[in-house]
Design a protein around this nucleic acid. Structure first.
Length: 362
DNA sequence: ATTGAAGTACACG
DNA sequence: CTAACGCGTGTACTTCAAT
């Protein structure tokens, strides 16, 4: 079955909302993220608008580096409640366009329009059977309409990619940003993918891209020369997915069902520390937050994992799996603290980050 | 031989 | 002074042990 998948991606989402709320920011570099604290901040950039990007500022970058690049930018904290509210409104609009949708994050979603086209075909609307060509025309029209509705109701722009599957739709959107609309039809997939960089493909991150670069592979066209077996040998199971994606093959369905598999919290201290009072006090807060979320979902847990990152960035985990699933807060607290204490006993380095996670939920 | 547990690596938004 | 690297969640891998 030939599908028609849309990927909807809001443009520089957090920063665009801040521009909307504060029109005086328009045309100026805006950086949403951690507090730069005069260049000493420890967090990272969440989103930067295009003016800020001109200075080389990108999401994920340490906020201290962003501050170096443009100290005069407008630095704003992440107002997640506002972004969540706006996101909900947008997703509600989006979901009217198809019963098959998938929300990926606050600012990204997929829609499967195949059904829609299919229904039209079978209905023989307007007295004629609608062929694949017309289905694509209709999908594009719907995408334009969706963009228009989001802009009129929310005063925010987005980019829509259309393709035969999620991978191609996402890449199409990626290449059409900002405020764009791009359709890649089934017979155009190869021509579209070949010149792209390998790390454009979902599943290829910095490490994988570097390994490929080492053997002289930079573009997807070159990546296709590697056999499935070779990629499997290099990257395991992921390698096979890479082989498929390089050829525009991706059967992943658009699906809204999400199963929570773990819940956790972690925090980086303002300064590296060995202060037991501070460490355990902070740890209790994390435990409480995790437990609260656990109870909101009425979950039992079986496995507790404690994460500890030291001054030198070495990160370690310790975990314990209980005999039986439980929802008991005291057991959670006691076991988690026991694990954290082990770290503090076997290691005297300053602590940068601590975290706690529960999994094996039921 | 299979399963489970512990710990780590990597990816993504 | 000796660079700088958050948070939350997921998958997959390796290693080791128990059944």
């Amino acid at each position: 079955m030939q599908r028609i998948i849309l990927h909807i991606d809001m443009d520089y989402f957090f920063a665009q909302i801040e521009e909307r709320e504060n029109p005086q920011f328009k045309g100026k570099p805006v950086v949403v993220g951690a507090d730069p604290k005069g260049g000493k901040g420890r967090g990272v950039v969440s989103t930067a608008n295009y003016e800020a990007r001109k200075y080389g500022i990108k999401s994920g970058m340490p906020i201290s580096k962003a501050y170096q690049l443009c100290p005069n930018a407008i630095f704003l904290p992440v107002n997640i409640d506002l972004y969540q509210k706006v996101s909900n409104e947008i997703m509600e609009i989006m979901e009217k366009y198809s019963p098959i949708s998938e929300i990926v994050s606050l600012d990204e979603a997929y829609l499967d329009l195949t059904e829609y086209s299919h229904i039209l075909e079978n209905m023989r609307m307007f007295g004629e059977k609608i062929g694949i060509e017309k289905s694509h025309k209709r999908a594009e029209k719907l995408a334009r309409q969706l963009k228009k509705e989001i802009f009129e109701k929310e005063k925010l722009t987005c980019t829509v990619g259309i393709g035969p599957n999620k991978t191609v739709a996402k890449l199409a959107a990626e290449k059409a940003k900002p405020d764009g609309l791009k359709m890649v039809k089934p017979d155009e997939v190869e021509k579209f993918l070949d010149p792209l960089d390998v790390d454009d493909l979902p599943g290829i991150g910095p490490k994988t891209a570097e390994k490929l670069r080492e053997i002289g592979i930079n573009k997807i066209l070159e990546l296709k020369k590697l056999s499935k077996e070779k990629l499997k040998e290099m990257f395991g199971k992921v390698g096979e997915r890479i082989w498929e994606r390089a050829r525009g093959i991706d059967e992943e369905p658009v699906s809204s069902e999400e199963i929570i598999k773990s819940i956790g919290r972690q925090i980086t201290f303002e300064r590296d520390t060995r202060d037991a009072k501070l460490i355990f006090g902070t740890f209790e807060k994390l435990i409480k937050e995790v437990y609260e979320e656990l109870m909101q979902n009425n979950f039992s847990f079986k496995t507790i994992t404690v994460i500890c990152r030291f001054k030198n960035f070495e990160t370690h985990t310790k975990s314990e799996t209980l005999k039986k699933p439980t929802k008991d807060f005291e057991i959670f607290k006691k076991e988690a603290k026991k694990l954290l204490l082990k770290f503090l006993i076997e290691n005297t380095k300053l602590v940068r980050l601590i975290g706690v996670r529960v999994s094996n939920l039921s």
